[in-house]
């Protein structure tokens, strides 16, 4: 029984990482129907941005939790800005081009990011100069470390903030409006370009935050770390219903739990096969996802 609770806790923990990345995927897709393939690499970029800040100013910041928050904020601004630039340079010129062109561009952006980092920092993994450690908490025989709890708390705070932003503010209303009908928004005087930029900023900043958290928690970062998590985040977004923000979080938690249990029964080496197999199965059975509404391809 204690084993069961441990599996649930592990699943929730991994799921919260997936959720932060999946949110950005889902948000961008919801608004401009673009599958931002490079999104996982922005997570990686966040981890390296944090790493750079730490290497330069580790002394000034000291160690510990507060330093982590500061670094995370800096990395979020950095990756957010990068997301805006990426949209401007690579995606905006192609907004009216066939979907295939944009997808290929996104693959190119992903490649350029990964190997740009590989060339800059070298292909070997880097060790994060600070780590979060500390004691652990026992819950009914299962263990969860304080570091894990802190990470999950940060993730929840970020998600709640995003949800409030999208549902309660004027900017959020503009985002929702554009996802419904971009042309009508344009006619109503909404600055569509600016809202799209803002969406990219938010999505990329969340991914960047997740990257820093992963770096600090696991302690090791490398230039390919975004590849698998990008795939998993997409899977989560599809499970939840792509374009639906609460769905993305739900999908991420479902995926985290599924993987946790899948690994327990099949062994770690089958984890990715299990996750992607589930994606294919899900697309066959319920392509709109758990919370997604029917999407018809508009002509």
């Amino acid at each position: 029984m204690d084993h069961l609770i441990q599996l649930i806790l592990d699943g929730l923990f991994v799921g919260s990482f997936y959720a932060l990345v999946a949110l950005g995927y889902s948000m961008v897709y919801g608004i401009i129907k673009l599958l931002n393939f490079a999104h996982g690499d922005i997570y990686m970029l966040g981890a390296f941005a944090g790493f750079t800040v730490l290497s330069v100013g580790a002394g000034a910041l000291g160690g510990g939790f507060l330093a982590l928050i500061v670094i995370m904020a800096l990395a979020m601004v950095g990756t957010g800005a990068f997301g805006v630039v990426l949209e401007r340079v690579a995606y905006r010129p192609l907004r009216n081009a066939p979907r295939l062109s944009v997808l290929i561009t996104a693959v190119g952006a992903s490649f350029a990011l990964e190997y740009g980092i590989a060339v800059t920092f070298g292909p070997n993994p880097q060790v994060y100069p600070i780590g979060v450690s500390g004691g652990a908490l026992g819950i009914a025989g299962a263990r969860i470390t304080y570091a894990q709890l802190a990470m999950m708390a940060i993730a929840v705070v970020l998600m709640v903030a995003l949800d409030a932003l999208v549902r309660k503010t004027r900017a959020g209303r503009a985002m929702r409006a554009i996802s419904l009908d971009p042309k009508a928004c344009l006619l109503m005087g909404v600055n569509v370009d600016r809202v799209i930029s803002r969406t990219f900023f938010l999505g990329s900043a969340l991914a960047g935050a997740a990257g820093v958290m992963a770096g600090a928690y696991y302690g090791k970062i490398d230039f390919l770390m975004g590849f698998v998590i990008g795939l998993k985040a997409f899977t989560a977004a599809v499970i939840g219903g792509i374009g639906n923000l609460r769905g993305a979080v739900l999908g991420a938690i479902v995926l985290g739990l599924l993987e946790s249990f899948g690994v327990a029964f099949l062994g770690s080496q089958w984890r990715d096969v299990f996750a992607f197999g589930f994606l294919i199965l899900f697309l066959t059975v319920r392509p709109t996802g758990l919370l997604g509404e029917r999407v018809t391809e508009r002509v």
Binding site: Q6, L7, F13, L224, V228, V263, G267, S268, Q269, R271
Partner: peptide
């Protein structure tokens, strides 16, 4: 067996 290149090995650890 774990997958090289990943970060979370909680399955194997459990």
């Amino acid at each position: 067996s774990v997958t090289a290149g990943e970060s979370d090995y909680s399955g194997a650890v459990n």
